[in-house]
Design a protein around this nucleic acid. Structure first.
Lengths: 107, 107
DNA sequence: CCATAACATCAACATATCTTGATATATTAT
DNA sequence: ATAATATATCAAGATATGTTGATGTTATGG
């Protein structure tokens, strides 16, 4: 019950829905890239990404000082159904602004 | 987007999840029966049922002074997937206490 | 018409969630 | 070692949501 509520409440925010769709569209991105793209301060994004991760939607790959967030794969039925629903919403996403230099990170 | 959020936030409450599962299990019930079964005051139930209805999960059939709530049928993919997920949660439900006399209502 | 029952809605309070700015931690570069 | 960068976390205020008791509304029955 609590796990389901954690999953559902992760979806219960406009910012997080956009983040999910953005990461679904562009693949793995670090917090600073999302910060540039969304024009949001870092603490706000960091919080929402944590909630999406705890809700089972995202994974994190740390690489030096960067944290790359991406859609977890595979997603279970309910979560992938939610993601499919989000794809149908016609959400306008901001342009991707890549600010980070991945260098020798293996993603 | 707003419609999806309305659907998701309808799921984002323990009382509402139990109501969904209860109605899924027992079929159409009026508010006073839910009141007896759940031991909750009427205004609280009425509010949650409205949220579930607005979220697209429930329908209402009025019959004299009674309002019978039941799972909407058919549910779309996302909502039925959510309901399926709820069925797997192992939620303990209170016993059904039928207080209403349906009389000549056609349900 | 009046009383009662079922239900919906409102106002007020309590609780939870989101946002922001500040601070902490860890990694990299000089 | 020092500075700079990326990220996480915390505390405080703002906003949203849930709960309760009171009040409306509608339908039924005497």
């Amino acid at each position: 019950m609590d796990i389901f509520l954690e999953t559902v409440s992760a979806l219960n925010d406009e910012t997080r829905i956009k983040l999910l769709f953005f990461l679904d569209t562009h693949g793995a991105l670090c917090v600073c890239d999302l910060q540039e793209s969304f024009g949001m301060i870092q603490s706000r994004l960091s919080r929402h990404l944590k909630i999406l991760k705890d809700g089972g939607f995202l994974r994190v790959d740390r690489c030096g000082t960067w944290a790359y967030y991406s859609i977890r794969n595979p997603l279970d039925r309910f979560r992938s159904e939610a993601l499919a629903e989000i794809r149908c919403l016609g959400i306008e996403l901001p342009p991707l602004i890549k600010h980070s230099q991945t260098g020798d990170c293996k993603l």
